[in-house]
């Protein structure tokens, strides 16, 4: 249990950073969500090892930490890839066939929304309207935007990020 036994699976530098944040927030009421945000920024996601450090450090039961993490969509229990692919499922994109684009994406990557490819390269997600309805259907890969897509465009786009 605890931070010492965690260091085998979590790099020390990250751990020190997290512990500092916990230290600063330990006795603040309602600080758990903030600490979890910071933890996710440091680690990219919130696996059991990280949640245990937060739970113990903040004096909150692990079950409660897990309850908060699974309640909010922005927290992830799974690692995120180098390239975060967001498929807009807003109304305009949806009627223009965004679900077909998403389906093709899942097929190409062999995983589904919320997961991450084995080599930690791609993690596809669905998102709400990104206010680029003129480009519907639209996806973003990190900062890059691709619009007026058909499912057939997906392989070529992905290829750019595989080198």
């Amino acid at each position: 249990m605890g931070s010492s036994s965690c260091s085998c699976s979590v790099a020390d530098e990250k751990l020190l950073k997290l512990q500092k944040i916990i230290e600063e927030n330990r006795n603040k009421k309602g600080a758990l969500i903030h600490v979890l945000h910071e933890a996710q920024t440091i680690y990219g996601y919130l696996p059991i090892e990280v949640q245990k450090v937060v739970a113990e450090g903040m004096g909150v039961p692990l079950a409660e930490v897990y309850g908060v993490v699974t309640f909010y969509a922005q927290f992830s229990l799974k690692p995120k890839g180098q390239y975060k692919i967001s498929v807009c499922l807003g109304t305009a994109c949806y009627v223009k066939g965004a679900n077909l684009v998403l389906q093709k994406l899942d097929e190409e990557l062999g995983i589904s929304v919320g997961d991450c490819t084995n080599e930690l390269r791609f993690s596809p997600e669905s998102c709400r309207c990104i206010v680029a309805c003129g480009l519907a259907p639209v996806i973003t890969i990190n900062e890059d935007v691709y619009g007026r897509l058909s499912p057939n465009d997906v392989p070529n786009i992905l290829a750019k990020y595989k080198e």
Binding site: I48, P61, A63, E64, Y66, G67, T70, F71
Partner: peptide, 25 residues
């Protein structure tokens, strides 16, 4: 489990239709 016993192994997890009573992970 939480308030009376402070054992706190049971918690409400997930959200919406997927909400359930569960343990951590």
């Amino acid at each position: 489990c939480q308030n009376v016993q402070t054992v706190s192994v049971l918690e409400t997890v997930n959200r919406g239709f997927n909400t359930k009573i569960g343990t951590a992970f």
